[in-house]
Nucleic acid binder design. Structure first.
Lengths: 158, 158
DNA sequence: CGACAATAATTAGTTAGACTAACGAACTAT
DNA sequence: ATAGTTCGTTAGTCTAACTAATTATTGTCG
């Protein structure tokens, strides 16, 4: 999603958007979110694991062992897609599959220690990029971000 | 990028993250950005144009007519990829290609009125989702977001 | 108890969108 | 004028998404 992070210098940009318009705020937040994610994305590439696999692994690490169907649903993909991703993660030793003792049809997929390690290190790298940038802001600005961060989440959860 | 928006309920979540740690802030901002973008994404699907095409169109609408190479660079893809996207947008009547009068090798790609209309309407829908959610916040919270929004962009640009 | 519908995962085949490699056409600098 | 560079395209490959169909197991109902 990199739509519209260049709504900046449009031919007809509003002249006085320092006003309290929600248009302006919505636009800023949208562009800010896009730019921020783009900035931290590089950290994921360093893992050598593709984004969909990394994301599925993240669900397993932070959400615990689960079936293929629930994993697929958490990632917003269909079971066949997740079946392949899991097979590849398994081949690389990042997850393990075992039959569900409660249901002969089902699986229990779990992150291996190696997968867990990869995930946590990736997360650290990602956050490190942000922290480094935060370190360049003034105390007052940091306070402003602190005040707004929970609202950002609340806004999205809506 | 839907990595890690579930770093929330991890087994070892910090007990006191109301402190001023940059770890906490970085994590919140990251998750907030992901959640926010996910929330507005639905608006783009309604256009009936795929995200890569919509994004390229956005560059043309807000950035003005330009060559294929610069368009590709703006989108972070290689020229052959953009060549195809532009061909498809052209087939749908959203952009027009003409030879560059200054350089016989080059093209000038421009959004048609129809493409411009599609883009602007999509943007409005996207922002409408955010604005609707903003409307549910208190005045104090809105002020906090206003204070933080520019910082978000500054953070990412750095 | 047995037939049969429903569910879990996989396999097969298709599509979109990204890449690299290789190309012709046109510009630029010796 | 000719060598090298740059612009866009074509061809071929890869990943990751989908749907449809298959297999194995579970649950239910007559």
């Amino acid at each position: 999603m990199r739509i519209d992070d260049r709504a900046r210098a449009g031919p007809r940009e509003r002249k006085r958007n320092e006003g309290q318009g929600e248009d302006w705020l919505a636009d800023r937040l949208h562009r800010g979110a896009i730019a921020l994610l783009r900035a931290v994305k590089v950290a994921d590439q360093e893992t050598g694991v593709s984004p969909p696999r990394l994301s599925a692994l993240s669900v397993l690490v932070f959400g615990g062992p689960q079936s293929l169907a629930s994993l697929a649903s958490a990632e917003g993909v269909k079971p066949p897609t997740m079946s392949k991703l899991v097979a590849e993660l398994e081949a690389d030793g990042f997850v393990a599959k075992s039959p569900d003792p409660k249901d002969g049809r089902g699986l229990v997929i779990v992150a291996t220690p190696r997968g867990r390690k990869l995930m946590l290190e990736g997360r650290d790298r990602r956050l490190a990029i942000l922290k480094q940038r935060l370190g360049r802001l003034s105390k007052a600005d940091l306070a402003r971000l602190h005040a707004a961060a929970p609202l950002l989440l609340e806004l999205a959860r809506g």
